[in-house]
Write a protein that binds this DNA or RNA. Structure first.
Length: 477
RNA sequence: GGCGGCUUGGCCAAGGGGUAAGGCAACGGCCUGCAAAGCCGUUAUUCUCCGGUUCAAAUCCGGAAGCCGCCUCCA
């Protein structure tokens, strides 16, 4: 089965056939760097990172562009409020974004262009629009895109410009020919970042940077353009207008949009004060838990962030790691390129519009099957069993490289979890070892009430004891 | 007002014409001194409701209700 992708442009799943065989060109809208990133940004980035990984796994040569919007009203506003210059602000948040995305195990795209470094290309692009009669320059220095010059306007978002005009909520700007015309270039006020242009000192509008930069790095036409659902209108609609008006051909073949992250079933918003930042979440959960959470639901559906859902994911991740550790203890080895049932199920799910939720379910099924096999083998392994275990191990490692989760050494994972628990609760591991020793003695002497007393005491500290053939181990709940 | 989406067991969540994946939780069993972990089993005759198409619908069509998003900066 080949890859199928839900294309916003047509509102249905379609067979994925890139414009050039074997190659994929993908552009994803990155953040405007004026503030700390929240969990919603993380979702978009993680989703497209996983898509990127899957495309590479399918042996496509992928050129992946994700931009930074580093000139914008919000950045200027922040600069005016704080007295810090724009560049300092944007650099700070770009660094922060990179740090957080690295933590979430997000691969760097092929290129991460910044708007401010492509002003030349933006100006050239606007000039092409003007030359073709698709844009116009007005007194005062603004340049607008002329909606009336582009008859396909609205095809991505399913909007009809005539309807929109009737119910337009936007203030009518006298200088615009059509109230829906949008800004390509705007004159700069004193003190604002600005660049020389044929229309005077100014700066680019928001939408034009993506048309200019995608043209620069991917050409007139490319395969995939992604971003959050909210970007469908007006941002992506406007990009289509700009690029198709200039080149007269299809801008993007497949439009992919991810859903939002809600917080306790409410939209994240400033007024509700429930913006949940990536760094806050990272304080409480391992990056892998966050990443797995973000992939636990289909990328187009809304996903609800809550303490409960994070705990649930965390339990599931422990279970997977425990299984990997068990496989390793049983001597499972990566052996060659053979793929098993897990990989088959996983691939099938990923090929179906990157269904990571279903893909994850196949992992849990494999965990169950593998555990059963290990229980049945009971330490005595024949050649066949060993082969199967190797297959599980192979597959799960391959899967983890796509999802970007559970790829740590399990011992390290559990140790890190322990260390964090101990640090949070200020617990000395030697003390725990001592209590475990005392309990072992008590058990040897059949003093079970003493043994249980110790266990209950540790339980109160969220420490769970596990008695195994090799002695007693402990972990945090 | 315009456009789009969602409604599946206690909770989360796949599926999307052929008779309900997976996770968490709960309960029973194996194991254990007792537990924990792991395994096994049980938990939706049914997929918001009402009509229709079909041999067959949670899946398609029409309608209703509830919820949500975009249309203004937003991932």
């Amino acid at each position: 089965m080949g890859l199928k992708v839900y294309n916003t442009l047509h509102g249905r799943k379609e067979k994925f056939v890139p414009l050039n065989e074997g190659k994929v060109k993908m552009y994803v809208c990155g953040p405007t760097v004026y503030d700390t990133s929240h969990i919603g940004h993380a979702r978009s980035v993680v989703v497209f990172d996983t898509i990127f990984r899957w495309l590479e796994n399918l042996h496509y040569e992928v050129r992946y562009v994700r931009n930074f919007t580093d000139v914008d009203d919000k950045i200027i506003k922040k600069s005016n409020e704080t007295g810090v210059d724009c560049k300092t602000i944007t650099e700070k948040y770009i660094d922060e974004f990179h740090d957080e995305m690295d933590a979430l195990n997000v691969l760097r795209p092929s290129v991460e262009p910044k708007a401010t470094e492509h002003i030349r290309h933006i100006i050239d692009f606007i000039q092409m629009l003007i030359d073709k009669g698709k844009a116009y320059h007005v007194k005062g220095g603004d340049v607008y895109f002329s909606l009336d010059s582009f008859k396909d306007y609205g095809k991505l978002s399913g909007r009809n410009p005539d309807d929109m005009r009737a119910g337009a909520r936007i203030a009518v700007d006298e200088k615009k020919k059509n109230p829906l015309d949008f800004t390509l270039w705007k004159p700069a006020k004193p003190g604002e970042p600005s660049w020389e242009s044929p229309w005077g000192k100014g700066r680019p509008g928001w939408h034009i940077e993506c048309s200019a930069m995608s043209y620069e790095y991917l050409g007139e036409s490319f395969d995939i353009h992604g971003g959050g659902k909210d970007l469908i209108f007006p941002h992506h609609e406007n990009e289509i207008a700009q690029s198709e008006a200039v080149f007269g051909r299809q801008f993007v073949k497949y439009w992919i949009h991810n859903g939002f992250v809600d917080i306790n079933n409410e939209k994240m918003s400033k007024s509700l004060g429930n913006f949940t930042m990536i760094k806050e979440v990272l304080e409480n959960y391992s990056p892998e838990v966050i990443r797995m959470f973000l992939l636990s639901k289909h990328y187009r559906s809304p996903i609800d962030y809550s303490e409960d859902s994070m705990k649930e994911i965390s339990m599931g991740l422990d279970r997977i790691y425990a299984f990997i550790e068990r496989l390793e203890n049983a001597g499972a080895k990566i052996d060659g390129s053979k793929k098993g049932e897990l990989w088959g199920d996983f691939s099938h799910a990923m090929n179906d519009d990157f269904n990571s939720a279903k893909a994850l379910a196949s992992v849990f099924e494999a965990v169950k099957k593998g555990n059963r096999l290990l229980d049945d083998a009971n330490g005595l392994k024949d050649g066949d069993t060993q082969q199967i275990l190797n297959l599980f191990y192979n597959d799960i490692k391959a899967v983890s490289n796509i999802l970007g989760v559970f790829l740590l050494d399990p011992q390290f994972y559990f140790k890190a979890k322990k260390d964090k628990g101990m640090a949070d609760k200020a617990i000395d591991p030697a003390e725990i070892q001592d209590l475990i020793r005392q309990r072992a003695d008590a058990r040897k002497n059949k003093d079970f009430s003493r043994a249980d007393e110790i266990r209950d005491h540790l339980q109160n500290l969220n420490i769970v004891l596990e008695d195994g053939p090799e002695g007693t181990t402990w972990r945090f709940e």
